[in-house]
Amino acid sequence: MTSPAPNLRLSQNLDSGRTMLGDETFLRSLEQLAILVRRVTRPGLNGEHRGLTRSNSAEFADYRPYAPGDDFRRIDWNLYGRVGALFVRLSEAREDVAIHVLLDTSRSMDFGRPNKLAYAKRLVAALSYIALSRLDQVSVGALTYDVVDRAGPLRGKDRVHRLLGFLDSLSARGTTDLNTALRRYADTGQPHGVAIVVSDLLSPSGFRAGIERLRAARMEAVVLQVLAPQELAPAVAGDVELVDRETGEIVEVTLTEAVVNEYQRRLREWTAENERICADLGVSFHQMSSATAIETVVVTELRSRRILV
C-alpha cells in the first residue's frame, strides 16, 4: 500500500472556493477503495485494477493442461520435468480501467447551503483519487449543455494536484443539457471504461438519451445525483417568486406547508423515475444531499450501493 499524496489540502470547508480532499485518515480510507468495474476493460497497459477474468500477465494464478494452439511460451517446462505432462501457466488479470468522471457545472449546481457544485467537486476529487491510487486512467469532464472543459487522462497519485487545480478552475455557467453533453463526451473517441456522472439531474430534457449513448460506446455508467437540503426540504416561506438560476424563469407561489408537501411528493416521484431509468439501463444510481459528509457518502453509501468496493 502506498502512502497518501503529499501536500494535499486537508481543510473540509466546502465554501472556501477551493476543492479539497480531506484529512489523512480519509485519504487512507480512499486508498483502500476501488471503483467497481463490472465488464468493461481495456487491453493494453496493466493497471492495478483487479479484473473479473484470468489473463496471461506475469502474476501467477493457476495451471491448465496444454491444448493445441496454446502459446507454448506459456508451457511450464519445470513442471513438465517433474510430472511429465504439459501445463500452461495462467496469471490473474491486472486490467487497465479508464475512469471518466463527468461533473455537471451548469448554474443550477451553484445553489444551496452547502453549495452543490463545491460538494460535487469534492466528490469528484475523492473518486478520482481512488482511481489514481489504483493506477487507473482518470479523465474529468465539465458538462453543461456541452463538454465545456476536460482534464486527463491522468494516471498515478502524483497527478492529483493537477486534478485539484482543474477542479478549482471550474465555475458554474450555462444551462444544463445532459443528453447533449453526454453524447458529445461519448463521441470524443474514448469509448470504454466507467463513466461517473455527478449532477443534480435538473436537466429539462432529462438524461436517459445521454446514458444510452454512453452505454452504446461500451461504457459502464454510474449516476450520482447531488441535491441541496433546500431542494430536498424547502422551508415554508409564504409568498415568493421562485427564480430559476439558469433560465431566469419566475414561478410565483405561496410556500405553505401544503405546497411544500406537494413539492416533496413530486420530488419523490421524480427520484423514483430517475432510479427506474437507471435500472432499465443497468446503471447504478445514488442520490445524496450536499449536507451529508463526503466521508459518509464515499466510505459508507457508495460501498453499500456496490459502486465502490
Partner: peptide, 24 residues
C-alpha cells in the same frame, strides 16, 4: 409580497404546483 424573490436551482419541479395557491 410582490417583490420578494427566492432564487432556486431550477423551477422544474415547481411549475404548476398548486394552481389555486399561485399568485397570478
Amino acid at each position: 409580497a410582490q417583490r420578494r424573490r427566492e432564487p432556486v436551482s431550477s423551477v422544474l419541479l415547481w411549475r404548476n404546483l398548486v394552481q389555486d395557491l399561485e399568485m397570478r
